[in-house]
Structure formats: structure tokens, C-alpha cells
């Protein structure tokens, strides 16, 4: 996915440094795609940034969910916050105990940060020579990653299934009407079905 972001940005007429620098300092795939999309469509920087930030509001919820994994130190908290993504949170929450959650967060966080940025640079320099990455089915890779990551939690904790199903229905129903990034924010309303306080840990 990093490769396709680099390639798309450069193919759209942006200089090579733009996707490369953006990926290091913003480091949020879907937000970068949509922000660059808005910019390339002539939407202006304010509209582009607003679109990206709307998509990233979910990171505030994710940050709260993994805050205890980022360590007691100020430095690790400041660094770890930058690594909060859909994937690192999913990797971490797929682990059974706090020690392994912490390890999964940091290992996947550092690994994904490296992989994403190397991919973006490769894509930016290769330009549009790669062709359409949809031909390789790469757009199915990201949802598949999430499937693999949430399955253990859903299998282990039956009480998550109802809220998750309701969340999906809400998000899909809102997709045709709401701006990108907003539909998934409705999903946590599915927690209304969550019978918490009984035996067994969530996530």
C-alpha cells in the first residue's frame, strides 16, 4: 500500500519529496491517500487537511485503547503515540496478556513504520511505472489484514459479536451519505449491545 501511495502521488504531479516526507511526519495511510486525492483534485490545502484529519479522528479512540501499552516514560509515550495506527492497535489487542500486547504494539509499530516508509519511497521513485495496483488485488490486502487481526478477539469474546455486527450495519448504512471517515465513527454506538462487567476480558 505504501508503494501505491508513493506512485499515485508522483503520478498525479507532486514532487517526489512530498509523499516521502508526508509519510514520515503524518504516517496515516488512508488520511494521506485522501488528502493527496483532494489536493490533486484542486481542493486546496485546508480542505485536504480537514479530510485527512476527519479520517484520523479514530486514532484518538485507538490512542485511548492502547495508552497503557506505551510505557510509563514520557519519551516512549510521545514516540509510541506516533505509531498508533489501525494495524498496530489490532496487532496489540489480538494478544492475550499485557506483556505480549506491549511487545506486539512496539514490534508491529516499528516494523510497519519502516515498511510503510520504504514502500512509499520505492513507489515515489518508481513513479507510475508500476501501473494500477488494483490489478494485483492489493486493495483487498488491508481489509484482509484487519480480518486476520480481529478474528481472535471475536472468537474468544462472544460478547463482542453483537456490537461488532451492529457497528458494521451502522457504518455501511451511513457510507453513501456521510463524508469519508465518518461512517466508521458511528460503529462504537454498537457498544450499546455490549453487556460489560461480567466474567472475561474484552478485546
Amino acid at each position: 500500500m505504501g508503494v501505491s501511495f508513493g506512485a499515485i502521488a508522483v503520478a498525479g504531479g507532486l514532487p517526489v519529496w512530498v509523499p516521502v516526507v508526508m509519510s514520515v511526519v503524518v504516517y496515516a495511510g488512508s488520511a494521506q491517500f485522501s488528502a493527496v486525492g483532494v489536493l490533486l483534485a484542486g481542493g486546496g490545502p485546508l480542505a485536504a487537511a480537514a479530510t485527512g484529519l476527519l479520517l484520523n479522528t479514530r486514532n484518538a479512540a485507538f490512542g485511548l485503547a492502547v495508552a497503557d501499552l506505551l510505557g510509563p516514560g514520557r519519551a516512549t509515550r510521545l514516540l509510541g503515540a506516533h505509531l498508533v495506527t489501525d494495524e498496530t492497535v489490532a496487532f496489540a489487542l489480538a494478544q492475550p496478556d499485557p506483556a505480549r500486547r506491549r511487545a506486539a504494539f512496539w514490534i508491529s509499530g516499528i516494523g510497519l513504520f519502516a515498511a510503510w516508509n520504504i514502500g512509499v519511497s520505492a513507489g515515489a521513485f518508481a513513479g507510475s511505472a508500476l501501473g494500477d495496483t488494483a490489478d494485483y488485488g492489493l486493495d483487498a490486502a488491508f481489509p484482509a489484514v484487519l480480518v486476520a487481526l480481529v478474528l481472535p478477539a471475536l472468537r474468544e469474546n462472544a460478547r463482542l459479536r453483537g456490537p461488532a455486527a451492529l457497528g458494521v450495519v451502522l457504518a455501511l448504512a451511513a457510507t453513501p451519505f456521510a463524508p469519508a471517515g465518518v461512517p466508521v465513527l458511528l460503529a462504537p454506538a454498537g457498544l450499546g449491545l455490549y453487556g460489560y462487567g461480567r466474567k472475561g476480558a474484552a478485546g
Partner: peptide, 18 residues
């Protein structure tokens, strides 16, 4: 516990819309 559950619910919605 609700925050962890909320993150899972959000991820499931994200994969479904994605």
C-alpha cells in the same frame, strides 16, 4: 474494557467498509 471493545468494533466496521 469498553474502550478495548470499542476499538475492536471500530476495526470490524473499518474492515467491512474497506
Amino acid at each position: 474494557e469498553l474502550l478495548s471493545a470499542g476499538a475492536v468494533v471500530l476495526l470490524v466496521a473499518l474492515l467491512a467498509t474497506g
